[in-house]
């Protein structure tokens, strides 16, 4: 007979971790067992299953159908405009100048890996459009990738709830957004000028073939994503970024994330308030 509600055992945790690490690089340590449990529970409900093991088995034979909802359930998509702006500010002071000189003439290309609903690449765009060094570029392109299709759709739509704008002041809000009222409550639509040059596609950090372009980027932003990664996932991600960034280009991580000591391809450098990793000549 079957129990009505299940709990996730350590063995199941290890199995899910194995699967999540190989598909997405993600890892839930033991102290986050309950978090994974609560994230997966709705998927058990939806498939009318009672045990986590049954859900694991289902993933073995029906991953294709279940991949999207699973992705949505386990990823943390928290993001907002103007998050940790010190890195964007650092770009303004000398960095951008230097980046434009080192790369391909007339072009500046950025990748936002794990872009969620677009807040990060759009913020980058807002900043860049205000910087003199970026203005002279013929091509200013920002690619956003994420594994969560639903988030990407929201990014394309570029209509946000107030929580996404929580650290903006009144003036910034009206400068960058047009307010709209819709069925789901108040919404703020990013003005077209700040959407120009930003593109979104489904991409998995672990799978370089899924990156939108094979031409190297001047800088990669991957912030607040790798904290959820397993050790092997983290190493694979760094390797992929090392290939995606040109020599001399930069990698920006979230403020609590560090790859110091993990790779020879990047060298940490301090710029004002923030640390960035420079792609070394190998």
């Amino acid at each position: 007979m079957v129990e009505a509600t299940a709990s996730l055992t350590l063995e199941e945790l290890a199995l899910f971790n194995e699967l999540l690490a190989s598909k997405f690089g993600l890892h839930f340590p033991e102290h986050k067992l309950e978090i994974l449990e609560s994230r997966l529970q709705p998927r058990l409900f939806a498939n009318r299953l009672h045990r986590f093991m049954d859900y694991y088995l289902l993933l073995q034979y029906d991953l294709k159908r279940e991949l999207d909802p699973l992705t949505r359930a386990i990823t943390n998509n928290e993001s907002y405009f103007f998050r940790e702006t010190s890195q964007f500010e650092a770009l303004d002071n000398h960095l951008l100048d230097e980046l434009s000189q080192g790369g391909r003439a007339g072009k500046l290309r950025f990748l936002s890996a794990g872009c969620s609903s677009g807040e990060e690449p759009y913020t980058l765009n807002i900043f860049l459009r205000g910087f003199p060094a970026a203005l002279g570029k013929d091509t200013l392109r920002i690619d956003g990738i994420d594994i969560d299709n639903q988030r990407l759709e929201m990014a394309e739509l570029a209509v946000y709830r107030p929580t996404s704008l929580r650290v903006l002041n009144q003036q910034q809000c009206s400068r960058y957004f047009a307010s709209r009222s819709g069925a789901g409550g108040a919404g703020f639509e990013l003005r077209p000028a700040f959407r120009r040059g930003v593109r979104f596609s489904r991409g998995n950090i672990l799978d370089p073939a899924s990156y939108p372009s094979s031409e190297p980027y001047d800088a990669v932003f991957c912030r607040n994503v790798l904290i959820y990664f397993s050790e092997t996932g983290l190493k694979a991600a760094i390797e992929n970024f090392a290939r995606a960034v040109r020599i001399g280009g930069l990698l920006f991580l979230g403020h609590s994330e560090s790859i110091i000591g993990l790779t020879k391809a990047f060298q940490a450098e301090r710029f004002g308030q923030c640390i960035a990793y420079r792609r070394k000549d190998s």
Partner: peptide
């Protein structure tokens, strides 16, 4: 509250 929500991510 917005600030706290940005760092404390668990709804439960």
């Amino acid at each position: 509250l917005n600030q706290v929500a940005s760092s404390h991510r668990e709804a439960a």
